[in-house]
């Protein structure tokens, strides 16, 4: 069994379990059998908004220092699932999460875990660039200041902006409003702001959907570059983007229940991005990727 796509739970024969990747002839990459370092694990995660089940029984691993893309039709619960990974869903009234999410082996939903601490380790970049109406400097320094950091802020701000490939463009106008930047620059500012808190997982929900192709490419390059240091989970509607940047891709779909009249998001499969795009196990994946469905 390919160690990258298998966990103990893969053997679980529960009928509701999502269809997962099966063994297939080893591709060139599969030949590399070094053990994967699992950073975040989802186990039978379901999210409800009140009585409505948005996603059901999702289980997969997120590998350390790699980029995992979540793709699927609108409304299949990608954003919902992403928000459960750093407990942002706790803030949505009526949202409840079941199952477990472990980060470095620890359950982030355990009673003694402070959601604020989770969000400091697992950062988030949103679909719409949302810098604070403050200076560029204050935007980046915001997170560190929350923890009372005062010394070394200048270096931290510079380092974070450099990491987000924005430093050269803004180094002479750090005191200008973050809102004075272009959309692409604002999004990189938001990435810098997330980096400054020193997380090791960064969640990005359609980070390029409000950007033009050139700004998008810059962010994609940035993501690839960042993957050496960070574990990245990205939601995208752009198949090419998923193919270009991600190491692994998870495909979700909407499961219609005509009896109960509801639509629930389920994980169809997750695998190496190449495999998903060229040799998907489930016909629904191939249908979606080639544009025949969804």
């Amino acid at each position: 069994m390919d160690p990258r796509t298998s966990t103990a739970r893969d053997l679980d024969p529960a009928p509701m379990a999502p269809i997962r990747a099966e063994h297939r002839p080893a591709s060139a990459e599969d030949a590399d059998t070094s053990p994967v370092d699992v950073h975040v694990t989802l186990d039978e995660v379901s999210v409800h908004y009140g009585p409505f089940t948005a996603v059901r029984d999702v289980s997969f691993d997120v590998h350390r220092n790699s980029i995992t893309a979540l793709i699927g039709p609108s409304g299949c619960g990608k954003s919902t699932l992403l928000r459960t990974l750093n407990r942002m869903n706790d803030l949505v009234p009526g949202a409840t999460t079941s199952g477990s999410v472990t980060y470095n082996g620890e359950d982030i939903y355990a009673e003694e875990v402070d959601p604020v601490e989770v969000r400091r380790r697992i950062g988030m970049v949103f679909q719409k660039p949302n810098p604070f109406p403050k200076s560029i400097y204050d935007n980046v320094a915001f997170g560190p200041r929350l923890n009372g950091t005062k010394r070394g802020l200048d270096e931290l701000v510079e380092h974070s902006l450099q990491r987000a490939a924005l430093w050269d463009e803004v180094k002479d106008k750090l005191s200008q409003s973050g809102l004075s930047l272009s959309g692409g620059q604002q999004q990189r500012l938001c990435i810098a702001r997330a980096i400054a808190v020193n997380p090791d997982v960064i969640l990005m929900d359609e980070p390029c959907s409000a950007l033009d192709p050139i700004a998008t490419l810059r962010i994609e390059e940035l993501m690839k570059d960042m993957a050496s240091e960070y574990t990245i989970v990205i939601v995208t509607h752009n198949m090419q983007q998923a193919a270009r940047v991600s190491d692994r891709t998870a495909f979700f779909t909407v499961d219609m229940d005509n009896e109960r009249q509801d639509r629930t998001g389920v994980l169809v499969e997750i695998d190496q991005t190449d495999t998903i795009f060229t040799n998907a196990t489930d016909p629904r994946t191939e249908g979606y990727i080639t544009g025949r469905f969804g």
Binding site: N86, M88, L91, V116, E117, R119, R120, G123, M124, F126, K128, N130, P131, F132, P133, K134, F142, G143, R145, L146, N147, C190, R193, A194, V197
Partner: peptide, 24 residues
């Protein structure tokens, strides 16, 4: 969005209120 951003950076509710909502 702004409050979400603050929470995403690990702000507590009072921090989001005093450092983001009120100044904005």
């Amino acid at each position: 969005d702004l409050k979400q951003a603050a929470y995403g950076l690990g702000a507590r509710q009072w921090q989001a209120t005093f450092k983001v909502t009120l100044p904005a």
